[in-house]
């Protein structure tokens, strides 16, 4: 029973960062913006969070710093794509690249350092609880509030939304910043609560998996909860199987999350009806106001 609980709590630990990062990106994409820089924002969140916790000795300050770091990166993305109308795909990649380099540079003196981790009760910490609340909040915001409706309107038809007097760019900036904050927090979760240490490149592709999860969940928050836990479970099980010594190559097990992502994308994408029902119609398109 105890061993079962231990595995369950590691699954929760693996799923939480995916869930938080993907929830943020879901809101961004609902507003019609595709930010592929999740990985870069996450890694920046991980390093700024860890650094702040190390300097102040307070993990909660670390959490705030992680959110702030991710948000700052996302505003850079917003400035390029929303104000300067640069290509969203390429800009997202630039964010990722810059995030990986910058975090390594910022964190060069943080490797191997100790911090007080975010306190937990029986393995459950405040961020895990928050991630569940966030699912409900995002769902409520998008489908039950006026601003949520505006965000979806901007994502589905920015010209009409503009004609109705909504500030397309303003709403998109807000969503991008929210997504950046979530990605930063997800990264911070890794370095402040899960491990807790700073290792270069510690996000290891999780940002990309979060991006895939948004498609997998067909842009619906509650399905994201299911998707994130499915992926968390698979990656932990693959890890656990390694310890059984069945002679399965460790590389095969390590690559399972990525393979599963590909398979999941295929299974969801082949069903066009399911996909088109919720895909924001203006996803990835730049908006220029006619005057």
């Amino acid at each position: 029973m105890e061993q079962f609980y231990a595995i369950a709590i590691t699954i929760v630990g693996a799923s939480t960062p995916l869930l938080i990062a993907a929830l943020g990106e879901l809101v961004v994409e609902r507003s019609g913006v595709l930010n592929l820089g999740v990985e870069g924002m996450m890694i920046i969140g991980a390093v700024t969070g860890f650094g702040a916790a190390y300097v102040t000795g307070n993990p909660y300050v670390g959490i705030l710093a992680a959110i702030f770091g991710g948000m700052l990166m996302s505003l850079l993305f917003g400035f390029l794509t929303l104000t300067l109308l640069a290509n969203q795909v390429a800009t997202g990649l630039a964010i990722t690249l810059l995030g990986i380099g910058l975090s390594a540079l910022i964190g060069e003196n943080l490797v191997g350092k100790q911090i007080t981790r975010v306190p937990n009760f029986q393995g459950v910490d405040i961020l895990i609880v928050f991630s569940f609340i966030l699912v409900g909040l995002v769902s409520w915001f998008l489908f039950r509030t006026r601003y949520g409706l505006m965000v979806r309107a901007v994502g589905d038809n920015h010209s009409s939304a503009h004609a109705m007097g909504f500030s397309v760019i303003g709403l998109r900036y807000a969503c991008v910043a929210f997504g950046g904050g979530c990605a930063g927090l997800a990264g911070g979760y890794l370095s402040l609560a899960q491990t807790p240490q700073w290792v270069e490149n510690m996000t290891a592709g999780r940002g990309w998996i979060a991006l895939a999860l948004v498609v997998f969940a067909t842009w619906l928050p509650q399905r994201l909860l299911f998707g994130a836990y499915l992926f968390g479970t698979i990656s932990i099980l693959a890890f656990t199987v390694q310890t059984f010594g069945w002679g399965i190559p460790s590389q095969l097990l390590s690559s399972t999350p990525y393979l599963v992502t590909v398979v999941a994308l295929v299974l969801i994408s082949r069903n066009k009806r399911l996909l088109t029902a919720n895909t924001p119609a203006c996803l990835g398109q730049a908006f220029v106001a006619d005057r």
Binding site: L36, V89, G205, W208, L211, A212, V215, Y258, L259, T261, V262, L265, V266, S269, R270, K272, L275
Partner: peptide, 10 residues
Amino acid sequence: NANEILTSLM
């Protein structure tokens, strides 16, 4: 119809 950005990177 699977997004090639994500699959190629995975």
